[in-house]
Amino acid sequence: MSKQRETELYRPGETLAVKVWRGNANGGGFHAYTVPSQESQTVLDVVTWIQQNAEPTLTYRFACRVGMCGSCAMMVNGEPRWTCRTHVKKVIGDKPLEIAPLRNLPVIKDLAADMAEFFDKWTAARGQFQPSQSRDDAMAAISPDEPRRAAANAAIECINCAVCYAACDTVAANPGYLGPAALNRAWTLQSDVRDDAFAERLDAVSAGGGCFNCHSHQSCMTYCPNELNPTASIAGLKRLSAFSYLTGGKSR
């Protein structure tokens, strides 16, 4: 949006028209609210104001308010965003600000989506670190410049917010697809020399619903609030998998 339009529409001190989705797994709809507009107001501030002043039973999730915990993601004007770090100024338009639960996940109540399948898929992609050594061994010395470590570092700062999962049209079309976040996590572990489950994880991410379901749209990368690139991570898994196939399983 142009700077001029932004200042035209964003008027702290006046009021803001907001529509919030309310309901549960059986259905629901948008309810309209008028919220005092403030300087530096975030979308999460708007939701909190509504709950504290207008709709005490409104259900939503947040914890850290500083973009660390990944619990506050919602659809804002139809796009997935971390609401605690999304300023109203940035997303305001001619129409009321529209806030809804995350796409591609079942809803529990109001703005709280059911994250169970999202995390189940992390487990299915073998997102757990499998130590190759015990506490009695010496600490592994790994240079941050080592290529595999650099690949892991580039993808490691995921806050499990599911914004990418909500943005992915492949998840929308195929509920069995593991999705960008779980596969991105698997890629960081495949790039971790200390991990001991490389072969099992490669099987997990190469099976049905795995990395080969990705069509490289890059919607995940466009929306990831931490500017991670799950598309590149998934491409990395596709390479590992193809290479392992061509060499008869002698990968790494």
Partner: peptide, 15 residues
Amino acid sequence: MSGSHRRDGLRIASM
């Protein structure tokens, strides 16, 4: 989603 991501160049390339 509202569909704005579908107007992204790479999403169009995919279609």
